[in-house]
Write a protein that binds this DNA or RNA. Structure first.
Lengths: 330, 330
DNA sequence: ATTAGCTTCGCAAACGTTTGCGAAAACATT
DNA sequence: AATGTTTTCGCAAACGTTTGCGAAGCTAAT
C-alpha cells in the first residue's frame, strides 16, 4: 500500500506537516528553496493527497450525484456522458446511481448521496415515484437538486427540461406542412408529465389550423406495445399517411412494424419522431425528428447546478430549445 | 446544513461519543436500554454517518472505479448498468470516468482514482493507449484492476472478456450452414486486439472446411465507413450472399446501406453480426447475432473484482460464453 | 540600540469517525 | 467478606489533511 502522507514527507525533509502542506500548494509563506525540495520529494514518492482527509477537513466533497431510472438508455446515457465530461473538467467526481424506477431504491439512493455529502444532485425521478417528500430532506441538508427530463410539476424546484411543448408543436407543424391528413400519433405513459405536455401541445397545434385532420392518438408503454399497436392499426387497405412517435422506444416499435409490412418510407407512409437523433440515424432514409439532446441538456443542467453551488440562482425552470432535423421520412 | 454527528448525539444523551458509535452498530458492549435511547434520538435527528470520516478512519473507501472510452455507447452502457447494480447491492459506490480514448485523460483519471482511494477498478483501455505503464502504479498501491472488453495482451493482468474467438467462429459456422458462398466480412480497427482475435478465428473457421468460399474482408472504423464500404461493394449486379459485421457500429452502417439499396433481408441478402442484441432487435426481421452481453460481462467482472478484494484470485482471464441468437436475417 | 516589519516556519486544533484498552459498577461465586 | 467475573461504558489515539495564530530569525529603519 502506497502511503505517502504529508507526515512521511515532513519526516524525511525534516520540517513540519504544515510546511509540507503549504509548500505543495505554493503558499507564499514557504520559501522557494524548501518548497522546491518538498515538491521534488513528493514527486519521487508519488505523493497523492487523500481525498477523504481533504474532504473531511474542508467540508467540501467535490462529489456530484446523478440519479436516473436506468443508465442503459439512449437518452440518459448521453446526459451522463455530458455531465461526466463537465465534472471532470471542473474537478468534481461523479457518483451515479440508478433507481430502476423503484421508489424504495430511490429513497435509499438519496440516503447514500447524503452520506457521501454530495455537493449537488441531478435527478430524473422514477416514473413510479408519486411524492417529492423524500427530496425535502435534501433541501434540509443544503444539497441543491436539479431535476431534468421527466420533471415534477412542483413549482418550488429547480429544473431543466426540453422544450417539450415546443418540440411536439414543431413536429405537428412539420406534419401539417405535408398536407397529409391521416395521422397516427403514438404517445407514452399517460402518467408522465412529459407525455401530458407533449400530447397537449400536439393537439393544440392541430386545433389551431382550419383544415381538419384525422388524428388517431394511442398511448403505448414500451417498444413492444408500439409494435403491436402499429401492426394492428396499419394494414394494406388502411395505411395512415403519417406516424408520429413521441420517443425513441416508440419509434423503434413503429419502425419494426412498418418494416415487417414492407411499407416504403416515405412513399407509402411518413414518420416523424422526437428523439436525440441516434435511433433516427439508424434507418434509411434517416427519420425526420425534433431534437431533444441529452448531451445539450446535460451541459445546461451542469451550468445550472454550478450556479446553485455559487448561491446565485433563484428557483427556475430552464428550457432547451427544440430543433427540427429533416431526414427523408416525411 | 444538517450536522448531526456522533458528538452532538452524545451531548444530548449524555454519554460518550464511543458509546453512541457502538450503540448505533449494535455493539454488544452497550446495554439495550441506552442503545434504544441513542438509536431513537439518532433517528429523530436524521443522523447519517459522514462517509469521509468513516473511510478515513477505516482506510476502507468502499468506492469502486470504472473507466471507459465513452459512457454513451451501447456496450459500455449495459456494462455500467450491470456493475452499478452490483455495487449498490454490495454497499459500494461507483465512480465513473471516461477517457474519450485520450491516453492523457486516461492517466489523469487513474490519478483521480488513486486520490479517491478506490478499492478496485474496471477498465476498458482506450484504443489509442499503447502502453500499460501507468497501470503499474495501480499495482504499487494495491488497487486491483479488472480489464474488460478491449483487453491488453499482457499476461500479468486480470481480465474478463467475451469469448471473442468463439463468437467469431460461431458466426462463421452459422454462415457456413447456409451454404452461401459469397461473403462480405466487415471488421473494425486492425489495431485493436479484439479485431485481431475475431478476424483470426473467423478466417480459421473457413479454412477448416473443404468447400471454398469467397470471402471479402474489409476493415472499417466507424458507422460511416461501413456505410460507404458496403455501398461501394454492393450493387444490383453484385450482391454478396451474406454480410458479417463484427460490431454494432458496423452493423448500423451496413444496414443503412442495404436499406438504401432496397435489398430484402434475408431474401436477397443475409446478414449476421456480433452484438449485445439491442441493435439487431431494431430491424425487421431481427438480425441474427452472436451475443456478447455487456450486462453479463459486468456481472462476471464484478465477481472477479470481489474475488480480488478478498485476496482469493490468481491472475486469470475469465471468459464469457458466446451464444447464437437466431433472428430472421440469414 | 531600539523598534518595526517581513520572511519563514511550527504548534495545535479541528473535521467525524472507529477501536483497543482500561475502569467502574454490578453481579456471582467461594 | 473476599475474590472473581461480567456488564457497561469512557479515554484517547489515530486516520491525513487544512489553517489560524504565534514565534522565531532576519532585515531595515529610526
Amino acid at each position: 500500500m502506497n502511503n505517502t502522507t504529508l507526515k512521511k514527507i515532513a519526516g524525511i525533509v525534516g520540517c513540519s506537516i504544515s510546511t509540507v502542506s503549504r509548500a505543495l500548494k505554493h503558499h507564499p509563506d514557504i520559501s522557494i528553496a524548501t518548497r522546491e525540495r518538498i515538491i521534488e520529494l513528493a514527486n519521487t514518492l508519488d505523493y497523492e493527497p487523500n481525498a477523504f482527509a481533504v474532504h473531511l477537513r474542508t467540508k467540501h466533497s467535490n462529489v456530484i450525484g446523478l440519479m436516473v431510472p436506468f443508465i442503459s438508455n439512449l437518452f440518459y446515457e448521453s446526459f451522463i456522458d455530458s455531465v461526466e465530461e463537465e465534472c471532470r473538467k471542473n474537478g468534481f467526481t461523479l457518483m451515479i446511481l440508478q433507481t430502476a424506477n423503484d421508489p424504495k431504491i430511490e429513497i435509499e439512493n438519496l440516503k447514500l448521496f447524503r452520506q457521501n455529502r454530495v455537493m449537488g444532485l441531478f435527478v430524473c425521478v422514477s416514473s413510479n415515484s408519486k411524492s417529492l417528500a423524500h427530496y425535502e430532506k435534501m433541501k434540509d441538508v443544503d444539497i441543491p437538486v436539479v431535476f431534468f427530463d421527466n420533471v415534477p410539476n412542483d413549482q418550488e424546484i429547480i429544473k431543466v427540461c426540453m422544450a417539450d411543448e415546443r418540440a411536439a408543436e414543431m413536429a405537428a407543424e412539420a406534419i401539417q406542412k405535408t398536407k397529409k391528413k391521416k395521422i397516427l400519433a403514438l404517445f407514452g405513459d399517460v402518467g408522465l408529465t412529459i407525455t401530458q405536455k407533449r400530447l397537449k401541445a400536439f393537439q393544440e397545434s392541430f386545433q389551431k389550423i382550419e383544415t381538419k385532420c384525422n388524428i388517431d392518438i394511442v398511448h403505448t408503454n414500451k417498444t413492444e406495445d408500439a409494435l403491436k399497436e402499429v401492426s394492428n392499426r396499419v394494414s394494406k387497405k388502411n395505411i395512415p399517411s403519417i406516424i408520429f412517435c413521441m420517443s425513441d422506444e416508440i419509434l423503434i416499435g413503429a419502425m419494426k412494424a412498418l418494416q415487417s409490412k414492407k411499407l416504403a418510407i416515405p412513399d407509402q407512409i411518413g414518420i416523424i419522431s422526437i428523439s436525440n437523433g441516434f435511433i433516427p440515424s439508424l434507418y434509411y432514409p434517416t427519420i425526420t425528428y425534433v431534437e431533444t439532446s441529452g448531451f445539450k441538456l446535460g451541459k445546461l443542467a451542469f451550468t445550472q447546478l454550478l450556479a446553485c453551488l455559487s448561491g446565485s440562482v433563484a428557483l427556475t425552470e430552464l428550457t432547451l430549445d427544440a430543433v427540427l432535423f429533416e431526414g427523408g421520412s416525411l
